[in-house]
């Protein structure tokens, strides 16, 4: 048996010191130790995408990352969206496009969509569908989700205006 291991990581720009067991996932740590419940636990197998967060600027599955390996990493969750930043522009586009039904998958959708828009300024609908293929919406509201990401892309590259 091993004692809990102390680790320090940055979550949404804030340094956090926590103790974790070796098999505790980042998802459990975010939701249960840090009360950041915006990141959802769907399948706990990496399939549904509801727990997608940023780690050092890239999307990862929080359920498949052990917290103990996250020492020194910078994690950004849906709670890390700040007015004006890309995450928040995407979030607002989801609201404006009416892309949110039950909402459970949406934090992961927004992170995956933001990751796409960091790399592709003018994604086609096909690009968007491919980038979100690892995020399941059980309300099956995909059409409006794709429209929301497309709207966010146009707002970000200035082809349409809109609140952020």
């Amino acid at each position: 048996m091993s004692a809990d291991i102390p680790i320090k990581l940055s979550v949404n720009g804030e340094d956090r010191n926590i103790f974790v067991t070796p098999t505790r996932t980042l998802l459990e740590t975010l939701r249960e130790d840090l009360d950041l419940t915006g990141t959802k636990c769907g399948c706990n197998q990496g399939v549904c995408g509801s727990c997608t967060v940023f780690c050092d600027g890239l999307p990862i599955r929080a359920c498949l990352a052990l917290a103990v390996t996250m020492r020194g990493r910078e994690i950004v969750t849906i709670e890390g969206a700040h007015p004006g930043d890309m995450l928040s522009v995407v979030q607002q586009a989801f609201v404006d496009a009416g892309a949110v039904q039950c909402g459970f998958c949406i934090p992961g959708m927004i992170v995956s969509a933001t990751a796409l828009l960091q790399e592709t300024q003018t994604p086609s609908d096909h690009d968007i569908r491919e980038a979100l293929s690892g995020n399941l919406c059980r309300c099956t509201g995909y059409a409006k989700i794709v429209a929301a990401v497309s709207l966010a892309a146009r707002r970000l590259n200035g082809t349409v205006g809109g609140a952020t």
């Binding site: 990496g46 995408g49 997608t52 780690c55 890239l58 999307p59 990862i60 599955r61 498949l64 990352a65 995956s112 990751a115 796409l116 980038a131 293929s133 690892g134 995020n135």
Partner: peptide, 9 residues
Amino acid sequence: IAHPAVRTM
């Protein structure tokens, strides 16, 4: 292979 978030790790 898989999806972007799985390819990161």
